[in-house]
Design a binder for these strands. Structure first.
Lengths: 249, 249
DNA sequence: CGAAACTTTGACAAACGTCAACACAGGTGG
DNA sequence: CCACCTGTGTTGACGTTTGTCAAAGTTTCG
């Protein structure tokens, strides 16, 4: 579905506004970042399809043919890789404005699963179209390269976390990253509702779910958080910061 | 330095042969992968500079301005990230044909250090030139995207290792990955000389150097390896394989 | 309302890190 | 050429962190 509101109606309903990249309120967080208004119109020719993914369903799976990238519009996803022998690792959580599917470019097949953790919707970005549009459209190409590179930098940060932090530090870093991203989207960074289970957090952080649960309880006992199952209130972000920033190892 | 051997001398010395991508023996492992001979000549206009990096020196550091990518010609590198508080994590080891510097695209500054673990040389690929050449050169653009995506997939594999494997499994996976890449370059996959210290291996694998050393000794006791400091002989790759493939967690 | 999925907590075990001592190799300067 | 120094690697004893197993409480959803 494309934004085809006629020029005669300058004031468009919110629903319609959200359809075009140029007027999407995620444009500062998504692929359009850094593009001019003019450029955005051309980007819209690319992003011409939407897809909804119900909670628990997968947007794509490891082994699926790769044909498109997906920008999260609403909802929340996790990506996870599974080795042949069944080892499972959550590699990231994605929220509005973040891109899914970059792993698929390498071999034209996806290398991870993307699962919706709540009812979600995505913009479908046909990859062949993106490549050909990039050919004539320097700013888009550059923007896309930056996004891929940013993902590589993010992954290096996760390696640092997994390789050098202890349980408390990992959870603190996770919470701070989450609240930061939520705040960038206009949500509260103190009253947070987790979309994932303790097991999924644990998988992402290289910990067992019991360790995650215990660490939440410990943070609560210390007055850093208020924890009611998935409802988290961050009381002392500064203390979490210091935990991450003070290497004891 | 560009390859300007005249047409009148079809048989060129090996030294000169190596200068052009088209005749580089790394072309199957490097950026040129998948490009036609014709395309390769155009790629050569891009790769017009070499740089040597003595053992222990850095090719680039975190915070350096980003202007170019580097393809390893000879030698061996490590990349590592350091957090503000001094935590250090080796994020990869790079050998001939592998690309360094992709992290820099995101913010025009490097986010990791690249250190030569032995006297090394690299091809300098000016990034601005790469972007503009990609504009007119579909195959190159596609090839470059695949390389970035492959890096993302590789990173996911490291996360799986760090998040879900125990010490023995990590070291086994590390050794198998190393021997596989050495074999792809025509080196022995059984008689290996490690270019990095136990501490660097440990950092990469999220283990302390003592644990790495102990695990090497254990593998030797079990007859899987012969370990003489950095000289490793792989005696039972199959047993290492099975160790990685059999999740006990 | 009841089953299933998720979370919390405790007791105990295993894996890995810490600290320390010593061995070994390579390079430098006397 | 040897002595020495420094960086690196090995090994042991012990401590800490995290995982494992189990039970019970809580929420969600059909």
């Amino acid at each position: 579905m494309q934004n085809s509101t006629p020029h005669s109606t300058p004031i468009r309903p919110v629903e319609s506004l959200q359809v075009a990249c140029a007027s999407c309120n995620l444009r500062e967080l998504c692929l359009p970042l850094g593009l001019s208004t003019n450029d955005l119109d051309r980007l819209d020719t690319l992003v011409n399809r939407r897809r909804t993914v119900p909670k628990g369903e997968q947007l794509f799976r490891s082994g699926d043919n790769f044909a498109a990238l997906y920008a999260v519009r609403t909802g929340f996803f996790k990506t996870s890789v599974t080795s042949e022998d069944g080892r499972d690792q959550v590699t990231g959580f994605q929220m509005a404005g973040e891109l899914l599917g970059l792993d698929g470019i390498s071999t034209d097949r996806h290398h991870c699963d993307a699962t919706a953790l709540e009812d979600s919707s995505v913009c479908v970005i046909n990859y062949a179209d993106l490549e050909s549009l990039s050919q004539h459209f320097t700013a888009l190409q550059h923007s896309f390269h930056k996004i891929m590179s940013r993902e590589i930098v993010r992954d290096q940060g996760v390696m640092l976390l997994l390789g050098s932090m202890r349980a408390e530090e990992r959870l603190a870093a996770f919470l701070l990253n989450l609240t930061e991203r939520l705040e960038a989207r206009g949500f509260s960074g103190t009253a947070v509702v987790l979309r994932m289970t303790r097991e999924e957090i644990g998988s992402y952080l290289g910990l067992k779910l019991e360790t995650v649960s215990r660490t939440f309880s410990k943070f609560q006992d210390e007055g850093l958080l208020e924890v009611k199952q998935r409802q988290i209130r961050v009381l002392r972000a500064d203390a979490l910061q210091q935990m991450v920033a003070n290497a004891t190892r």
